[in-house]
Simulated scan of single mutants.
Amino acid sequence: MTHADITLEQRAQGALMGAYIGDALALGPHWYYDLDALRRDYGAWITDYTDPRPDRYHGGLKAGQSSQAGIILDLLTQSLTERGRYDEADFCRRMDQDLFPQLDGTPMNGPGGYTSQSIRETWRLRVREHRPWGQVSGLADTTEAAERILALAIRYALQPAELARQVSANTLLTQHDTTVMAMTVAYGCVLGSLVRGEPLDAQTSDRLMAMVHEGSLPFHAVTSTGEQTPPPGPEAPRQAGQFPSPDALLTTSGILRAATDPDIRIEPAWKASLVYGMPCAVYHQFPAAYYLAGRFQGDFESAVLHAVNGGGQNQARAILTGALAGAIGGIQAIPDRFLKGLEHGDQRLAWAQQLARQTAGSVNAPAGN
């Protein structure tokens, strides 16, 4: 099947299911920074869902189950499919009622077996200090928000300006560092472009930058087309939510050029985790995900398994890579064993199908619907 034969609905389904699958594939071998220990516990190459060891981060869970990232993605996806649009109050209500009562503020607790720094900070401010939503975000530099906003990027793929607005608003609920926000929104913009059917290539950044210059994306264009220096005179005031530079959008194409340059090879590809960094921060995770999805165009299995086998924060890497690779190849590119082995796979596929229909029907919808 060629790229042109993949429908919008198939790309949208592939993106959402790819994220869920990436999360579950990394559940067992999550956070092994000692790669020798990873190989001793799971063998030379992980190919499928695995049980976490009882002494590890997700001990007690079983192969095919989700981490807390997948569970939070459930909350946002279910809200989107039931409401037909992003309803921030509804999503926050689900967090308050369905997630927070199961947390106690410690890391090794809660659904999925581990609660991230970002969610712990939000829980503390919301539950312990009784602050309202909008005043509970923290400074964690992880991809926590990106692991859920990908559902918004799918839903608003045909409305790029609305995509950026909603992704920015949802990210701000739990993370307010401007670099984290810029890189998260940029990832959402890239994923949305893939769901629309645009390729992941060296021109991806150029296409997104064209939207910046026309005012569709909230990044501050330091230079105008063809200029090498900022234009003279005072710069225009920035609106709330605008980011200081477009660099987060420019990252993608540079990495794609490296992935396709015959003189630049990372062999085996899982060592992208060593090149870009194994830790949790956004500046390690997004580049590795772009590299793996770009290198294995249309090969979902290779992209995600190299993300998993790279160790470190492989769960975030696999979620982000899985969404990109699923959008590129469509739902039909995902091996059947991954779909069948995923807990709640049928329900999540039904949500993916419904979200895809909403995405396809949004082309003539007004903003916010």
Rank of each mutant, 00 (worst) to 15 (best):
116 S>G: 14
118 S>K: 00
119 I>T: 12
121 E>A: 13
122 T>G: 04
123 W>T: 05
123 W>V: 00
123 W>H: 05
123 W>C: 03
125 L>Y: 01
125 L>T: 04
128 R>V: 01
129 E>K: 01
130 H>R: 13
131 R>D: 03
132 P>D: 01
132 P>S: 04
133 W>A: 01
133 W>C: 09
136 V>K: 07
139 L>I: 09
140 A>V: 08
144 E>I: 00
144 E>L: 10
145 A>P: 00
146 A>E: 12
146 A>I: 02
146 A>W: 07
153 A>Q: 06
157 A>F: 10
161 A>L: 08
161 A>G: 15
163 L>T: 09
165 R>G: 03
166 Q>T: 08
166 Q>E: 14
169 A>N: 05
171 T>S: 10
172 L>N: 03
172 L>S: 14
173 L>E: 05
177 D>W: 04
179 T>C: 11
183 M>H: 15
183 M>I: 10
184 T>H: 09
187 Y>P: 02
188 G>Y: 05
191 L>P: 02
196 R>P: 02
196 R>C: 13
198 E>F: 12
200 L>M: 04
202 A>G: 13
202 A>D: 14
203 Q>M: 12
205 S>D: 12
205 S>N: 10
207 R>E: 02
207 R>F: 06
208 L>N: 07
215 G>A: 00
216 S>H: 12
218 P>N: 08
218 P>I: 03
220 H>G: 04
220 H>L: 09
220 H>V: 08
221 A>Y: 03
222 V>R: 13
225 T>M: 10
229 T>Y: 11
229 T>R: 14
230 P>I: 12
230 P>C: 10
235 E>A: 15
235 E>S: 15
236 A>N: 05
236 A>F: 06
238 R>S: 09
239 Q>F: 13
240 A>G: 11
241 G>W: 01
241 G>H: 01
244 P>V: 14
245 S>G: 06
246 P>F: 02
247 D>G: 13
248 A>Q: 05
